[in-house]
């Protein structure tokens, strides 16, 4: 069987899997961004209780493995009556995990905004909320976008784990193809290339474009 024949036979399954991988990746990214902003801001709160909750969340999710968290959410939560569909459990686990890493990026970026900016906003009599949304966060966003570029790649890679709870993503499909055909190089090799192309030619350029767009927007082109 030549490689072309292999692709003709199994290509459509892999394409379906790739679509699911991309969907999981996009949803996980949304979850991660929300979690990161929420817990990143909570870490900077003046209230020690709020800060404590965020710290515990971040340490738990960064201190254990994504796979452990995924299995916990999928196998243990139903025991407490919270039944999640495998599709939801998949992107939720990846998003919650990566969000904890993102929260530290958010916190670091906000702290890296020069002190003068805070003082100027205070001097202009801005409300706390307005100061955060209009002055601090836009600048923090520019600071944190480059490390987010790496994190987003980690999210893409993380979604491969959802195959282990039978979400039919690319990883899952090539595993099935491998079991059926034993053509491991073709199956896994193709998947490696697809993930690489997604990361290198889609995710990274989008993040770079976003970096350029944001720094232009706040006048740092």
């Amino acid at each position: 069987m030549t490689y072309i024949e292999f692709l003709q036979v199994h290509g459509s399954r892999m394409a379906d899997g790739t679509v699911l991988t991309v969907v999981q990746f996009l949803l996980a990214t949304v979850v991660a961004v929300v979690v990161a902003v929420l817990f990143g801001l909570m870490r900077l709160s003046r209230n020690p209780g709020v800060r404590g909750v965020a710290t515990v969340y971040i340490e738990i999710f960064r201190g254990t493995s994504l796979l452990v968290q995924l299995f916990w959410i999928f196998f243990v939560l139903p025991l407490f009556g919270l039944n999640l569909d495998k599709f939801v459990a998949g992107f939720l686990a990846v998003g919650l995990n990566m969000g904890a890493y993102g929260a530290e990026l958010v916190r670091g970026a906000i702290r890296a905004v020069p002190r003068g900016q805070w003082e100027a906003a205070l001097a202009l009599n801005m409300t706390d909320r307005k100061r955060m949304w209009r002055v601090i966060l836009p600048q923090a966003l520019v600071i944190m976008l480059p490390p987010w570029g790496n994190l987003v790649i980690e999210i893409l890679k993380g979604t491969a784990l959802v195959a282990l709870i039978s979400v039919a993503d690319l990883m899952f499909e090539v595993r099935q193809i491998n079991i059926a055909t034993f053509l491991s190089v073709q199956a896994f090799g193709t998947a490696l290339i697809v993930y690489y192309v997604l990361a290198r030619f889609f995710v990274t350029p989008v993040m770079r474009a976003l970096e350029r767009f944001m720094s232009r927007k706040i006048g740092r082109a």
């Binding site: 790649i153 893409l156 890679k157 993380g158 979604t159 491969a160 784990l161 195959a163 282990l164 990883m171 090539v174 595993r175 491998n178 491991s184 896994f188 090799g189 998947a191 490696l192 993930y195 690489y196 990361a199 290198r200």
Partner: peptide, 11 residues
């Protein structure tokens, strides 16, 4: 660096 470890393990 840009492909999943899980996939590499299988590979």
């Amino acid at each position: 660096r840009s492909t999943p470890l899980l996939l590499q393990v299988f590979f």
